[in-house]
Write a protein that binds this DNA or RNA. Structure first.
Lengths: 128, 128
DNA sequence: TATAAAATTAAAGTTGACTTTAACTTTATT
DNA sequence: AATAAAGTTAAAGTCAACTTTAATTTTATA
């Protein structure tokens, strides 16, 4: 049996906790490109699912859909020419640098909130 | 001289690399509340600047303005009652937890991109 | 003191990221 | 085979986060 498991759109949507129309929207934007059943319905593989997870992860960090697309490549671009690959590599390196900065930034955000917590704790003590 | 340095809106905007209207917009949303000059122009202190930086930092991580407002408190809420303080503390604790999760997520994102880089490098080698 | 540069407000306009709707087709269930 | 559930498309609608505009006022500069 060569039956690799494929997901229907609503099945995948449920697992990722997004709506089917969001998935279709991402397809419109060129971020993902599923296969189709005999009757033209979308079919997603585990790879497609991983790609969607990656898209959602990027989103959680405030990357725009356009940025994510450049970061992970447009779904239907073949990506076989050397030039295209080099471009993607360069973009990836940039994004890795950005992620490194985000890590620092995240530490700062944490520190800021912790400092604020301290101030609040003190105010609360002063009230008692 | 009791002249603590105050920023005019365009001055502050330039330093933070955002537009004056963005700052006004944040004020509309209750995120920041500057002083006013005799002639009714906005004046920002170093504290206001720090607050704006914090807002921008939150944004970079994909928090919405509404979330940021709850996280750091609405600018004009006095925050002196114990209940209000407790609420902010609780919210802060939640957000710290979220930041912890984001740290993990960021590591995953980095790993994903690194893995993608490897695949691309190999494809590039194969072409040569 | 004239005039240019920067601010003010309220309201309308724009953009990105979805969501909803409508009219129809495919697939699953009784 | 009938009917319900899920899928399809294109187009319109919504919402958050800004940005622009317009009409007026304040502040800085020649």
């Amino acid at each position: 049996m060569n039956s690799i498991k494929m997901y229907a759109i609503s099945e995948l949507a449920a697992e990722l906790e997004i709506s089917p129309s969001t998935i279709r929207f991402y397809e419109d934007k060129g971020l993902i490109s599923p296969e189709r059943s005999a009757g033209n319905q979308r079919l997603y593989s585990r790879k497609h699912k991983a790609r969607l997870k990656l898209i959602l992860r990027g989103k959680r960090f405030g990357f725009s859909l356009a940025e994510i697309a450049e970061m992970i490549g447009y779904a239907d671009v073949p990506l076989n020419e050397a030039e295209q690959i080099c471009k993607s590599l360069a973009f990836g390196r940039e994004k890795l640098e950005e992620i490194r900065r985000k890590k620092e930034d995240l530490a700062l955000l944490e520190a800021d909130i912790l400092a604020m917590q301290e101030v609040l704790e003190k105010r609360l003590q002063a009230l008692k």
